[in-house]
Design a protein around this nucleic acid. Structure first.
Lengths: 141, 141
DNA sequence: AGATAAAAAGATGTTTATATCTTTTATGAT
DNA sequence: ATCATAAAAGATATAAACATCTTTTTATCT
């Protein structure tokens, strides 16, 4: 479903939402250790998220990555699309170039419902929503 | 969602269901041209499907791949799992090793519903069901 | 039996995804 | 102003997926 980069991105963004703020930035190393993922690879992912404006960062001493309040109001869908590309929820399940409700592939009508359900779920769910839920339900990352 | 091999497999199986029979086997080349996919690569996929007992084949002159009536009664889910592995519908969306309804990752409860919907759809839908629908609705492959 | 056709199997190449390392640049602290 | 710190950027390495080619095996027909 999601690429590994994307999975890391989702977890990292939520971790930052919970543990960072404008006044308390976090380094890649710390995030990587918390999530138990390869640091240099996570750095790439965070840089891309930063370049796409989904997370914030500053260089230099006491710098690091963080989420502003504005960042936290973005949808999880944007996070996913920022890494795996905008077509992940809309491209044909069978990889056919022409596939739409007008010209459906054999799986289109039946399967698209479920994928769109997931898409809309992630569209509605903001980073903040998710992190609040994680704190309340004591979920793991 | 599905790997390229898996997409090819789905399309090839359906093509065989529609165009082949025990008395009319089809060569890889013919299938590859019909679906417009690379022949040698499709051959690998068909071989794996054959080895896993999802499609039938015979060697030699007038040999080729085909679907017996018994083959056609298998679910599309088996086709998918035969190529992409049995975990494709059940592994954690975030790639966490421990993730279940008892110990859910942040996306688990909400997202799993949709993926399971797709899984059950493919479980119910046999190869024959799908090919009949394709013929009736004149869908493309 | 020999020729042939086609899958099966194996070897190899190419591309993309994943992962790591090194250098550069910007920032805050002294 | 200088130094230390940490992200950004670039270069490189490894693994997996994707793709192709070649050889072998097997079945069928003559």
């Amino acid at each position: 479903m999601f690429s590994k980069s994307c999975k890391y991105a989702i977890r990292a963004v939520v971790h930052l939402a919970i543990h960072s703020s404008e006044s308390h930035k976090i380094g890649v190393k710390e995030v990587a250790e918390a999530l138990d993922v390869p640091g240099p690879f996570l750095a790439k992912v965070l840089q891309q998220l930063s370049k796409n404006g989904l997370i914030s960062s500053t260089k230099g001493p006491s710098g690091g990555f963080y989420l502003s309040e504005r960042d936290k109001s973005a949808s999880m869908r944007k996070v996913v699309e920022s890494i795996d590309g905008p077509d992940i929820f809309t491209s044909c399940l069978l990889g056919l170039p022409v596939c739409s409700s007008a010209n459906p592939c054999p799986l289109h009508d039946k399967a698209v419902i479920y994928r769109e359900g997931l898409m809309y779920l992630l569209t509605r769910q903001t980073i903040k929503d998710l992190s609040v839920r994680i704190i309340n339900d004591e979920l793991i990352l």
